[in-house]
């Protein structure tokens, strides 16, 4: 029992750090693929690492209107995503699942959002308020959708522990596939885009004030503070992609401690996350950002799908 816990803890820390280390790479890959679609050569896929290093060396400017909320937010942001990362299986099913389940993960993300939205308001700039206001609208529908989508998987596998969901699905395989799984996957993918401020919800590469959500909230951050906020957001994208990969398609994840299984697990998760990155890049190249008040249509679509997923599990 204790032995298991130690192994899980070690793996959890290694995996969380691996996710943190790889998250800028994922951003780099998405940007590169988008560049190809646009017929550009694009920056190197390691460019986000350079950006991060640069931001760490830069001077930090804090608004004179800012209160303590603005100052603590970057640390809370990175801490909440890292704690969440400890609870999510990455290349093995070993994680700190006994500390918290999927509800904890989603609510830790809410904690991140809670602080970030307040930080957006804190400096008294109209842009920050705009971003915060829109983020509240999007997240108030996305969050339940995410919960419902993962609950579907939890009900199918009989546990809300993310690691156990992956394990059960990976071992018992395709027998557990139900109609609900398809609906839930679709709902979760739409929410993933919304939650991480990707097209068609938000355009991550724009700084045009009137269209942006995420960028508007972190507009006042600079230097190391900005570096932490960006790292946290990238990490969040990574985390959701990993959840999508490991909860909905966990096949290939390492379920034991063999070396072969580990290597297989690492290869599998990298391929799966790469697929998510490609999917995001394709969507961003092929779609325009939606008008703000068109967003509820798409959000409600994902919510409805998630609701039907849970109900379909119960009925069918």
């Amino acid at each position: 029992m204790v032995h298991d816990m130690i192994i899980s803890s070690v793996f959890a820390v290694v995996q969380a750090l691996a996710m943190l280390a790889l998250s800028p790479l994922m951003i780099g890959v998405i940007r590169k693929i988008k560049a190809w679609f646009q017929g550009r050569k694009g920056a190197s896929i390691v460019q986000p690492y350079y950006d991060m290093a640069k931001l760490f060396r830069k001077e930090t400017v804090v608004s004179d209107q800012a209160s303590w909320v603005f100052r603590v937010t970057p640390y809370v942001a990175i801490a909440s995503v890292m704690v969440a990362a400890l609870l999510v299986p990455f290349f093995t099913i070993y994680s700190l699942g006994f500390v918290g389940d999927l509800i904890v993960v989603i609510y830790l993300m809410t904690m991140f959002k809670f602080f970030m939205v307040l930080a957006g308001l804190d400096t008294g700039s109209a842009f920050g308020g705009m971003g915060s206001s829109r983020e509240l609208m999007v997240s108030s529908i996305v969050e339940p959708t995410m919960l419902l989508a993962i609950f579907t998987m939890a009900l199918i596998t009989g546990t809300t522990n993310l690691s156990s969901i992956s394990e059960t699905l990976a071992i018992s395989g395709i027998d557990l596939v139900r109609p609900a799984l398809f609906l839930a996957t679709a709902a979760f993918f739409i929410s993933l885009l919304a939650e991480n401020a990707r097209v068609p919800f938000d355009n991550p590469s724009t700084h045009l004030e009137l269209t942006m959500i995420h960028e508007a909230m972190v507009l006042e951050y600079s230097g190391r503070n900005l570096a932490l906020m960006e790292a946290a957001s990238w990490m969040k994208l990574m985390l959701y992609s990993v959840i999508l990969s490991n909860v909905f398609f966990p096949w290939g994840i390492a379920t034991d401690l063999t070396v072969l299984g580990m290597i297989g697990g690492i290869a599998a998760i990298l391929v799966k996350v790469l697929f998510v990155a490609i999917a995001i890049a394709i969507i961003e190249s092929g779609m325009a950002k939606m008008r703000l008040f068109r967003l509820p249509n798409l959000l409600t679509l994902s919510f409805t799908l998630a609701l039907l997923a849970v109900t379909s599990y119960y009925i069918l």
């Binding site: 001077e59 930090t60 608004s63 209107q65 970057p74 990175i78 801490a79 230097g223 190391r224 932490l228």
Partner: peptide, 20 residues
């Protein structure tokens, strides 16, 4: 840990007005 590793070093932080 985030604070220890990521807080701005003294002298690299300054206060200024919100971007207006």
């Amino acid at each position: 840990m985030a604070w220890v590793l990521g807080h701005p070093k003294s002298g690299t932080e300054r206060t200024s007005g919100t971007w207006d």
